[in-house]
Design a binder for these strands. Structure first.
Lengths: 213, 213
DNA sequence: CGTTGCATGTAAGGTGTTACATGATTAC
DNA sequence: GTAATCATGTAACACCTTACATGCAACG
């Protein structure tokens, strides 16, 4: 362990109230990753693709990029995560003058933020994916309603899936070959496979319901 | 609208603090569905398969049945939802004497609970599925770490998926043909398709990473 | 002249988790 | 005897959302 580290600091780093930290991390502290919520790292990670972004822009990027394989956080939460990240020293903000507009606050990832993030990316255990499949939940209790109502719900789900697939294929195509996009096209392809599985399943269910209902 | 219904009651029913309700629902109020969280309906729905269950048993059933297509709530939350459900009159509890053990409290769905649930099952809009795919999120930021670490994470995910698939296939096989299981085998088959899509995607990613890393 | 987009936030409260407390029974 | 399972809960708090407030600029 490095120079600036004592038990007191460690306790504060790994306790939940990191918001009350007055000291920032030093590189010496980086033997372990502090327990920031995954959302904080997700926001932090968006700053590693080479652009300094404002809270507002981050919201847009989050919506555009993780929408289909992670949920996208509410805008108010992004601002809150940014505040926390700045307090622990993982990002730095700077005012960017805008023509004829109030300034915007752009965030840059710091070296120490980058290290913490890299550590988190490879850290284990990785939580298992969490799926909250509302249409499947409706089917699970489908014995309580008319099959025709179930089919309606399923068909809406199918058409929403097709839109999602279109979107994913477009995004993947647009980014493949782009040096700065990292593994994101690969992630979009992966997400597309998941959604195609969902589609196959939903169509199987519809077929089952129509041939005996 | 029915006899016992006035604006005041409506406001209380559709406001969030249904916990403070002193009046219970009557069947007349059932033209619409109150905004209970999906979790409450999920718990309520488990009581429609013909068994009266205790909080403890419900936790087990939830874990066993929706684990793979919905998340399973913490035990403490199940107890809280049951309390709420009883307060609005959707379930009734009765003490069941246990040999040589403290009594357990078994819950039964009421007629009005059943109506509310049926209404909810067919109500729209149905929320889109929410996926929080942690391994995919790691890959999304994979440009920050060694590819070998990514492959490790992916391979662990693959083996976890295979267990899930085994589990789903077993459950589907066990329940197919069982009159009392409703559509649940169909849901398990659907979930299996989703997980097979995930598997296909993860294997594609691994192949991609190994052939150029 | 109203709506949409950019941009940043606060207030309030719902949703869900972890950790703990309790107590008896069964199994090793 | 000590661990695991059955069984029920409370306390504390992390996480996240909705709704609102603000202000300016551009579009039609």
């Amino acid at each position: 362990m490095g120079s600036g580290l004592n038990l007191n600091i460690l306790l504060r780093i790994f306790s939940y109230d990191y918001l009350s930290l007055t000291n920032r991390y030093t590189i010496d502290d980086m033997n372990a990753t502090p327990s920031l919520p995954a959302t904080a790292y997700a926001v932090l990670g968006l700053l590693t693709f080479g652009h300094d972004l404002s809270g507002y822009e981050l919201r847009g990027w989050a919506q555009g990029s993780f929408r289909h394989f992670y949920w996208s956080p509410a805008q108010s939460q992004i601002y809150r995560e940014l505040k926390k990240l700045e307090e622990v020293g993982f990002v730095e903000s700077s005012a960017v003058p805008q023509a004829d507009r109030p300034d915007k606050t752009a965030y840059t990832i710091t070296e120490i933020g980058r290290r913490a993030l890299s550590h988190w990316v490879a850290s284990k255990p990785v939580d298992r994916p969490v799926l909250k499949h509302h249409p499947a939940m409706r089917l699970f209790f489908g014995h309580l309603v008319e099959p025709s109502l179930l089919i309606e719900i399923l068909e809406e789900h199918v058409s929403s899936l097709m839109q999602t697939l279109d979107d994913l294929e477009m995004q993947s195509a647009a980014l493949t070959g782009d040096e700065t996009s990292g593994f994101s096209p690969l992630v979009f392809d992966w997400a597309a496979e998941i959604h195609r599985g969902d589609l196959r399943g939903a169509e199987m269910v519809i077929k089952h319901l129509t041939t005996r209902g």
